[in-house]
């Protein structure tokens, strides 16, 4: 990549990160960020600042300071603003909660990923994203099939992919170890597998 002049990005990085651009504006910034190092850096800075407004949700219920002014209340709306937006992508309340947890895990922890290797001709393309500390797995597939997910050794059932639109996914907060294998299977046979490494 080369450093192209970025004056043409002007203030669009902030508008992009805040979701205030229309579709063509978004595509323009995406293209600039893909071809210009300085543009990518500026977009990344704006993204980090907006993402920074989302407070980690791992704190249990604690004493919450009183909101003292109207603007502090507005800021509280900022802090919880991301998750209702993410909720639009799912259909049911339970699915909403699952996606919110998965998103929080992705944003606030270090993770690795591995592609599934096909074991059968009709295997879907799929990938497993997993916490470096082995505390959770998030499996995404580009086929809308509710396949069963198991882990080896032990053929431990982890759950079933949940279909949404043209894709399917499963988030599970179960401990895993390096070297374990995650398999996708239908009612008949295994279709694909991925090995977890650390």
């Amino acid at each position: 990549m080369t450093d192209a002049p970025h004056a043409h990005l002007d203030d669009d990085a902030a508008a992009y990160a805040l979701g205030a651009l229309d579709a063509s504006g978004m595509m323009r910034v995406d293209a600039l960020a893909a071809s210009c190092d300085e543009c990518a850096r500026r977009v990344g800075e704006a993204e980090a600042t907006v993402a920074r407004l989302v407070v980690p949700a791992d704190a249990p219920a604690r004493a919450v300071p009183r909101v003292r002014t109207a603007w502090l209340a507005i800021a509280a709306a900022f802090v919880i603003g991301l998750l209702p937006s993410a909720y639009l992508l799912v259909r049911t309340h339970d699915a909403q909660a699952t996606r919110a947890v998965a998103l929080d895990a992705l944003v606030h922890s270090h993770f690795l990923h591995a592609s599934f290797v096909s074991l059968a001709p009709d295997a879907p393309h799929a990938k497993v994203i997993y916490a470096r500390d082995g505390s959770w797995l998030y499996i995404v597939s580009d086929a809308p099939r509710p396949l069963t997910v198991v882990a080896e050794p032990g053929d431990r059932p982890l759950g079933r992919l949940e279909v949404s639109g043209t894709a399917a996914a499963l988030y599970v907060a179960v401990p895993t170890r390096a070297g374990e294998i995650v398999r996708l299977r239908d009612d008949v046979a295994p279709l694909a597998e991925a090995r977890l490494v650390r």
Binding site: M1, D30, A33, A34, D37, E38, A40, R41, V43, G44, E45, E47, A48, V50, A51, R52, V54, L82, A86, L89, V90, R99, A102, L103, L106, V107, H108, H125, K127, I129, V140, S141, D142, S164, G165, T166, A167, A168, A169
Partner: peptide, 27 residues
């Protein structure tokens, strides 16, 4: 959310290291 991840995964990778935080990018 998995639709977004699947789209990112299938298409050309829009994330570059110059962009900084991957978590912020996904968010």
């Amino acid at each position: 959310m998995q639709d977004v991840l699947a789209r990112l995964w299938r298409g050309p990778n829009p994330y570059r290291v110059e962009r900084g935080s991957l978590g912020a990018f996904l968010t």
